[in-house]
Structures are given as C-alpha cells and as structure tokens.
C-alpha cells in the first residue's frame, strides 16, 4: 500500500528538483543559456541549496514519523526531544563566543550541543526505558536549553552578535554551500539508517508498551536507538539550517492516511514528502519579493504549520484522526 505514495513522491521530486534550480531572484531559462553566471548560480548556489533542502527535509520527516510512532502520539514532533534546542544552544554559543566567524565551527558547536542533549536524555530516561519519563526529560531539556539560549541572547557581547543569533535561529537555507551538504549528509543518512532499524519495534509499539515487550521489543535498546537516530538527523539539520519547525509534525500526518498506518510504512513516504515540502518552501522563500532580503524558511514553515496544527487539533477533538 505504501508503494503508490512512494512512487508518486519520487516522481514529484524528480520534477521539482530541476525546476527548483531555475527559480529564484534570477530566473534561469533552460532554453536560453545566455543568462549571465548561469553555471555558477546553478552549481554553487542553487544545487547545494536544493540538496540541503532534500537532506534536511528528508531527515526531519523521517525523525517526525519515528517520534510519532515511538510516542504513539500524532502530535509528537522531533523538537520534543530537546535535541534541536540543544543544537541551537550550541550554535548560539558559537555566535556568543565569536567562533561562528569560522564557518566550520558553527555546525561543530551545534553538533556538540545536540550530542550533549542526547547524552543528558539518555542519562535521565535511559534507566527504565519508559516513554513517560523520556518525554518529560525531553521537554525539560528543551526548556532548559531554551532558557540558556535566551540568557545568551540577553547577555550578547555586541548588538551585532545578537542580531546574528536571532536571524540564525529563524532557520534558513539561504547562502548555504556544498560545505553544509558534506556536514549534514553523512549524519542524516546515518540517523535515518538507525531509524530504519527500529521500524519493526515501532510497529510493535502500536499495541502499547507491555504488548510490544511481549512481541520481543527491548525498550532500552529501542530508546537508545531512537535517541541516536533522531539526535543525528535533527542535530545535523539544526547545525546547517537552524531551527525548522513543523516539518516533522505535518509531514507524517499528511502521509499517514496514504499508508496502512503502521509506523514502519510511514518512514519512507515521510522522508520523501519532507524533502519535497522543504524544497518547495525554500523555492517559495526565494521567489517571494520581500524588502530587505528573503523570507526565512523557518518563518515560512511556521506560518503554514501553525494553522495546520490547529486544524489537526480540531479534527482530533471530533475524533477523526
């Protein structure tokens, strides 16, 4: 049953990727190779940006689907883990200390932040492998990292650093290069591979924790793999693109009715749809005329995501999710 949406999404991506390369402030006419600097724009600006959108979107979509399966809750989002807040905190500290001036150190700081959040989460929740403690620990870490981030912003050494931090936190793919692709791709791929490993355990969790254990699921192993899988994908995405919300929440939702609703059937379609959504949203940001630069991707997605979330809540109240 999942074959059909997967095939459709692959076709859509095959169409969207080349078209997305043509769109932007400078439109490139493929039949008129006269555009100035077309090769540079395509290969050094738009192609890495498109590839990054695919990686980040695919990672967030997969992580979201896995999170919803793990927490057995359609409102779960990879952000609940605290990993993205941890990564953001790391990035903020790199601005704060000035190390962000070196292009490699910002993602390194962010990855260290993500790793710290993952370790803390494993330390607090890892003992019993239960979901409730785990969720609370994730929320606690997210809120702690959020508070520290606000503290860092309020104590910014210079107004310039403050504005850098605030802009960066909004999440974007603008001005990214192949460098970011090389950072995000291996980590995201590794994370997605780990999440694919736990797919069957997530299916078993459909029946609740006790039944899942009776079906051979080992809760502590599952939890450890979830932390690593989500941590790698989300950590990598925050490190290169800042905080991009709602993809991990919306995408699994849109895909679920097209599958047999098992968490394992949802992973691949969510990865593809997440990639497509981020690619399209990024093109939209590029082509929307906005004074003073382009619309930030994080803002655009939240603008789409918030009403969607509300719609979802209302639908759940009517009991039809």
């Amino acid at each position: 049953m999942t074959r059909k949406p997967t095939l459709l999404l692959v076709c859509a991506l095959a169409l969207a990727v080349p078209l997305s390369l043509l769109a932007g402030r400078v439109w490139i006419d493929p039949f008129d190779p006269q555009t100035r600097n077309a090769a540079v724009i395509l290969l050094q600006l738009r192609l890495p940006r498109a590839v990054l959108a695919l990686i980040v979107g695919g990672g967030l979509g997969t992580a979201g689907a896995a999170m919803q399966g793990y927490l057995r809750n359609p409102l779960a989002d990879p952000g609940l883990f605290g990993v993205s807040s941890g990564a953001a905190l790391g990035a903020v500290l790199s601005f704060w200390t000035g190390y962000a001036a070196s292009v490699y150190l910002l993602p390194v700081f962010a990855l260290i932040g993500a790793g710290g959040a993952m370790a803390l989460l494993a330390l607090i929740a890892g003992r019993d492998g239960g979901v409730a403690l785990f969720t609370l620990a994730g929320l606690m870490i997210a809120s702690l990292a959020g508070a520290l981030m606000s503290l860092a912003i309020s104590l910014s050494p210079t107004p310039f650093a403050m504005s850098e931090i605030v802009t960066w936190l909004m999440g974007a793919l603008a001005d990214r290069s192949w460098r970011e692709v090389w950072i995000a791709a291996p980590l995201t791929l590794a994370g997605v591979a780990v999440l694919a490993l736990v797919a069957r355990s997530l299916d078993a969790l459909t029946l609740g924790e006790a039944a899942a254990r009776s079906l051979g699921v080992e809760p502590r192993r599952l939890q450890a793999l979830m932390i690593v899988g989500v941590g790698l994908t989300v950590g990598a995405s925050v490190a290169v693109a800042g905080i991009i919300g709602f993809v991990g929440l919306i995408v699994p939702h849109l895909m679920r009715p097209l599958t047999d609703r098992r968490p394992s059937s949802l992973l691949l379609p969510s990865a593809l749809a997440g990639a497509l959504l981020l690619l399209l949203a990024d093109v939209l940001c590029r082509i929307l005329p906005l004074a003073g630069g382009e619309l930030r991707l994080g803002i655009a997605l939240s603008l789409i995501g918030a009403p969607f979330f509300l719609h979802l809540l209302l639908k759940m109240r009517r009991g039809s999710v």
Partner: peptide
C-alpha cells in the same frame, strides 16, 4: 490493550508476526 493507530484488522493481526 491499546491500538495507537487506526490500522486495519489484517494489519493489526500481522503485528503478531513481528517475532
């Protein structure tokens, strides 16, 4: 027992094959 997702009966039963 709970069933977290609105799967079909056949899909539900197939979960018994996970081991």
């Amino acid at each position: 027992p709970e069933i977290a997702w609105d799967v079909s009966v056949e899909t539900l039963v197939s979960l018994g094959r996970l081991p």
